[in-house]
Design a protein around this nucleic acid. Structure first.
Lengths: 202, 202
DNA sequence: ATGTCAAGACGGAACGTCTCGTCTTATATA
DNA sequence: TATATAAGACGAGACGTTCCGTCTTGACAT
């Protein structure tokens, strides 16, 4: 019963050098030519690799790009297993959103990241992987910080945390996707407005 | 000085029948096969039109799709030159967002509209046209309703109306783009939470 | 011995350009 | 006002190109 799916390749004999070369080439190329002009042939050529080696291990160019980001993210996680929690929710949120603004404005990550996000909108399989491996864990950190605020009485206990996360991080992501101007001042205003609400407070 | 750009075609002699056939074919095809498999050749074949007729008048398949939506929108505007204004902001916003939910859930428009929105994220020219012709006017209607609420004292005068619009309509759009579940109850909760803010009110 | 590897040939799809006649239409002439 | 003419848009599709995803080859590693 060696029939797994089709003809699953032997992961034990996989070339780590080729794998890394492919991910690196994909990441660099998408930054240079954009996602639309990114091709498997281009990645293979840049990586010094046969096309079949890519097709053997990945189902699509979106999946390659996803793995490139995953490798990047896993190379630097564990360092921040939680969002800052000084006891001042508004200040902590501003800190986090400002950092996000800086990251999204970094030209090294801007285009590749946008390309990945757009591809995810079109590929359900990729969206599932993204939700599980990258977005999900991050969202859990955000919700955990909000739960802490609930325990401190800074947020109501009955608050819908998913909606709260969408209200806080959604506008930033939306404006970034649309290539709008992202500033720290904008991040601050989002936090203030989302926390206080549009209506005047007495 | 008849040198406009390159060799601009004579709009006066343009075939209206071909134009309509192309837009109709594009709209139908994108609903049937999806944007990724939508091709200029396919549109031309379905419309009974030469490929050159498409390339003569549009720069990309995204532009064709955009015009298809523009024709649709212009065929039914003027009917609602303003958002409802009963004097109760929260109720009016819920009415509008619920209607938006219904529209986004309509399978006739869902896929084509998402395809257009995704394409706009990748094409700055298209994004500019979209902002000017479709999104801009709609956003102005939204801001006008919020201004009315400011005059009525339902919203503070110093409120950033652009941010307010993003906070109210952003989450809906984001969830729709990601194919999340859109319900009227969700629309209601957005309005309530955005108006009241995340923090407890006394 | 088996399976991955780099290299690249292969057929197919769609690209965007172009070249055919045909058909339409703006404008000039009668 | 009615007809003639020339410009140019039209449908059709051939063309060279790029990239797709599969397949083949011989080298190499385990």
């Amino acid at each position: 019963m060696t029939t797994q799916r089709r003809k699953s390749p032997d992961a034990a004999r996989r070339s780590e050098a080729s794998r890394r070369a492919i991910l690196t080439a994909a990441f660099e190329l998408v930054g240079e030519v954009g996602y639309a002009k990114l091709s498997i042939e281009g990645i293979a050529a840049r990586a010094g690799v046969g096309k079949q080696t890519i097709y053997r291990w990945w189902p699509s160019k979106g999946a390659v790009l996803f793995d490139a980001f995953l490798a990047l993210a896993e190379g630097q996680d564990g360092q921040e297993a939680a969002l800052p929690d000084t006891g001042d929710l508004e200040a902590d949120l501003k800190t986090v959103l400002r950092a996000t603004v800086d990251e999204l404005n970094d030209p090294r990550y801007d285009e590749p990241m946008r390309a990945l996000n757009i591809e995810i909108l079109q590929d359900p399989d990729l969206a599932a992987a993204y939700a599980e491996r990258l977005d999900g864990p991050m969202k859990e950190l955000k919700k955990e910080r909000l739960r802490s605020a609930q325990r401190a009485g800074e947020l109501p206990g009955g608050l819908d945390l998913d909606l709260a996360v969408e209200l806080l991080w959604g506008p930033l992501r939306a404006r970034w996707l649309e290539r709008g101007p992202l500033t720290r001042a904008y991040a601050d205003r989002i936090v203030e407005t989302a926390l206080d609400g549009l209506r005047p407070r007495n």
